[in-house]
Design a protein around this nucleic acid. Structure first.
Lengths: 212, 212
DNA sequence: TTCGAAAATGAACCCGGTATGGTTACGCTG
DNA sequence: CAGCGTAACCATACCGGGTTCATTTTCGAA
């Protein structure tokens, strides 16, 4: 195994071509103004082939933009609180913006998603579904109680909001470095709110400073 | 105005008939297994008429199951914190389960929604949009900053989770009174978590007691 | 070289939702 | 009561996302 035969290579190639073409068209004319037929034609395949690679039109954009939170919690090092693990994770990913894919492509994806209500709703719907996994991870094996579910919901909501703010800056045209820099501070703010509650006034939050 | 002519009465009647028939069919066979054509036929109208009353198939179930949060915050009495107002509101609605509609119908709706991933995702997506309104209300006129958005996100997530838990108990068959009673306690727990943070351990939360 | 299987295809189909153009019946006004 | 404007309703055709299926192409292994 692991011998990349011609067949596998062609498959990967086709998949990439479809997704690239789709992203370009979406970016040019807007998600809703592009039909799957057009994508197929522009990519030189049949409609049914597009759907054989991507189960839905949405997946052409959203594939691989999901987060793993539950895995972060279950895989956290010994003696580390769940929230601590999550804070550390997002603190770490904020700085270098570690991404295994082309940054330009990622930004385009974000732009496309942010500017389509349908896509936004889909992404949020999907993330909501994952809350249950996070709740299970937080409960650590036991059946998650209401507290676990509430924590999972709040954490998910906070992360989503962070991403939203980050994406918003990128979509507006802010350079990647600046957006990442702000994100770092935002992560600390968000987790402070999560850990210490909303009744902490803004002054208190600020006077604490966002000690890295 | 307010003079209910025959025309208006017929309209209301038709609308109600469509929604009732749809709900019954959904409950019997599942949301995805019922087509709009079937609903129309069973209700004795044309498909286009169904869509003239309800913009989407989802709305046949989700219409009127939304919450108002932003209004609660903006309309809160003098000297009352936003979170305090929300806590008071949900504390109040938990006990009598004040609903202007048939309880049995409401429960059926909930059952249908809970058992359809598509509907759940739709509801979550819709609630997402309302977060921005709540954030604006929290900011009180000024442009909402990240803190406001984070608070709105957390609050919305918590409320959603409460409803989910409540609905879950009803769907499982718990009597309305028992579910409402538990909901009252859950509301206090949720707002304690919101106000004081997730790092409060469960023992602390419980030792505080849920003082009404 | 041959053969099984994976990949791709075209065409028909289903369903949610929209557009159009026409019919019915309510309600107002004279 | 006559008649007219209009709101509600309808049938039909259409569009786009997504599925099914039977058929053909293409790769890889024996």
């Amino acid at each position: 195994m692991m011998m990349a035969g011609l067949r596998e290579r062609k498959k990967d190639q086709t998949r990439r071509r479809i997704s690239q073409v789709a992203l370009r068209l979406f970016d040019e004319r807007g998600y809703d103004q592009v039909t799957v037929n057009e994508i197929a034609e522009a990519a030189g395949v049949a409609k049914v082939t597009v759907f054989s690679y991507f189960p839905t039109k949405e997946c052409l954009v959203t594939d691989g933009v999901q987060d793993d939170m539950a895995a972060i919690v279950t895989g956290r090092p010994e003696g580390c609180s769940p929230i601590g693990a999550l804070r550390a994770h997002y603190r770490a990913t904020a700085a270098p913006v570690t991404t295994d894919m082309d940054v330009e492509t990622l930004i385009t994806r974000i732009r496309v998603i942010s500017s389509s209500p349908a896509l936004l709703a889909a992404v949020y719907g999907a993330q909501m579904s994952r809350r249950h996994e996070l709740a299970a991870a937080l409960a650590g094996g036991r059946e998650p109680d209401l507290t676990a579910h509430l924590m999972a919901a709040q954490i998910t909501a906070a992360i989503t909001t962070l991403q939203e703010a980050f994406f918003q800056r990128l979509a507006v045209g802010a350079p990647l470095e600046e957006a990442a820099g702000r994100l770092a501070g935002d992560v600390e703010l968000a987790f402070d709110l999560l850990e210490h509650g909303l009744t902490h006034t803004e002054e208190e939050q600020h006077e604490k400073g966002h000690q890295l």
